[in-house]
Write a protein that binds this DNA or RNA. Sequence first.
DNA 1: CTGAAAGCGCTTACAG
DNA 2: CTGAAAGCGCTTACAG
Lengths: 344, 344
Amino acid sequence: MTVHDDVTTRPRNATLKDVAKLAGVSVATASKALNGKDNVHPDTRRRVVEAAERISFTPNQLARAILGKQTGTVGLLTHDLEGRFSIPILMGAEDAAGAGQMSVFLCDARGDSIREQYHLKALLSRRIDGLIVVGGQTDPRPSIGRSLPVPVVYAYAPSLDPADVSVVPDNTHGGMLAAQHLISTGRRRIAHISGDVEYLAARERANGVQRALADAGLPLAGGEVLYGSWSESWGRSAALTLLDRDPQIDAIVCGSDLIARGVLDSLRDRGVDVPRDVAVIGFDNWEVLVQGSRPALTSIDMNFEALGRRAAERLIEAIAGRETPGVETLDCRLVVRGSTSYGR
Amino acid sequence: MTVHDDVTTRPRNATLKDVAKLAGVSVATASKALNGKDNVHPDTRRRVVEAAERISFTPNQLARAILGKQTGTVGLLTHDLEGRFSIPILMGAEDAAGAGQMSVFLCDARGDSIREQYHLKALLSRRIDGLIVVGGQTDPRPSIGRSLPVPVVYAYAPSLDPADVSVVPDNTHGGMLAAQHLISTGRRRIAHISGDVEYLAARERANGVQRALADAGLPLAGGEVLYGSWSESWGRSAALTLLDRDPQIDAIVCGSDLIARGVLDSLRDRGVDVPRDVAVIGFDNWEVLVQGSRPALTSIDMNFEALGRRAAERLIEAIAGRETPGVETLDCRLVVRGSTSYGR
DNA sequence: CTGAAAGCGCTTACAG
DNA sequence: CTGAAAGCGCTTACAG
């Protein structure tokens, strides 16, 4: 038994009034019964619940939200054109809130601040409880503003305003992890090829690598970090440069998986065996790049899902009024595969 | 001048009442003035608009929606774990509705039908105007149900129920495009390596390839389609099989870019020049795989953004009451790069 | 334990 | 042209 509209065959949404009528009680009582409030006779509650099920009553959250309650919705404003970060971050956020508790408006501003403003306006008019802003790269970005009516958490790229809440991966730590892994597996002549030096992520990862080497009393092989672009072709040419400069290198940390793929190609072309002669490690742990390479690529994972979960947790705290400004940093994770390990 | 809450420093949302008071008119008049209704004195309208701007009034869409209007929100229920389809489809949908007109709830059900039900329930309680369901692969999927209170459009994977509205890429056409391109550039011994035969996409693409060959009076080189898995390693081994079976082949259509990457690797290992000796074409046009290969990979693009745009258009039509059931098929697009073309 | 009433923020006939 | 009133679907004091 569903309620039908007159003009179309599409069922109209049942209202609390429908439920109340069917159960023979007032709307007030029906409301209390369904929301598990005290002071409702068990029999009454049962009748109401049954009635609600009979007509598949779905409470109108909009009406509830208008009463000053929260809407149970948050905005996720992203600049990630490929969905590489957004989807895992979204999944983490879904999990943090609990299944089906929180619905997420995803908007892609595509790196355009005008579009960001449009989306922001639309989200606020829909009365989101809070907002997560996901950057397209890890460089700090302008704050979206202090005087929004809802709390904001910045994920992946921190806000430039220290009064904002940001959750970002610790790229320095990631670089250290990579180098430490190589050192602990016996490598001593470790080089680093990275992407565009304009990216903070590139510089931080390089810092991490160099710090780990310094801690172990090792020099950076190749003399300096080879910065270039985030591409396979750069990986290929940089690897050749490196081999010419220092044929003795026994490991290369790469600033991204794409770069690492290029490096693997060039090593193969030169007849250098991976991992026997040279170990290679990537960054991103991007499944599609990492699984199929020869050999499979050890990589550093930035834990996007955990990042999303944490961002959502921080947002939920802020919505509840417990806000602690500043940049929170999350550890990266080493995923070992054949490119650094004989056993596999 | 913003309206402030007592307990926190976060500004409270201004209401229409605030605007009316500031402009010295009634709420009714303020409403009409802001919504561009007739019968409002120009001076009054100006005063109201100014007042609204002064206190950055953002109309509460929830209140509007509760009056039986539409919410201007749609759900996008996806099963795409990597965001490979979802984000472009989302962007297409955003564009179709017009910037900032329509907000999209993105939910990832992760291939789990229980989670799908949870999300569906949450979306309906938030009174979405319509729903787009995005499959994880192109195989037809169970209908989410006929008696939803809102229209549904299936994208990428069609619904099994012919009464539903579906928009899918034409994989057969994609396969034909690939083979025709090779034929038109002079290839005559064309083979086809694809992924898991259990996937409809694999079989349809193969049908397209074979149809184009038949139309040109050419046999399928290698004797049969080589089905396997959607991986680089399968691409590598299948290419070797193929070369052993028929050393004369001059082109290979691959069922995915990942497979094509594996094929390119094996050809290179065997000293076969691409594109001179053998042309290779992929499927998906996945930037990250296609750009950096040696040579860059010609590929078939399924136009996810156009797919999302079309799905949103169909949804908007359905919301307006103009619904035409059935499966709509969208053409694929050939993107030529170095792996099939000398010039580049 | 139950229900009538007020109210959330808006829009829309309907009087004036 | 303007505003008082009713109402959307719900929740929450407040009487009974």
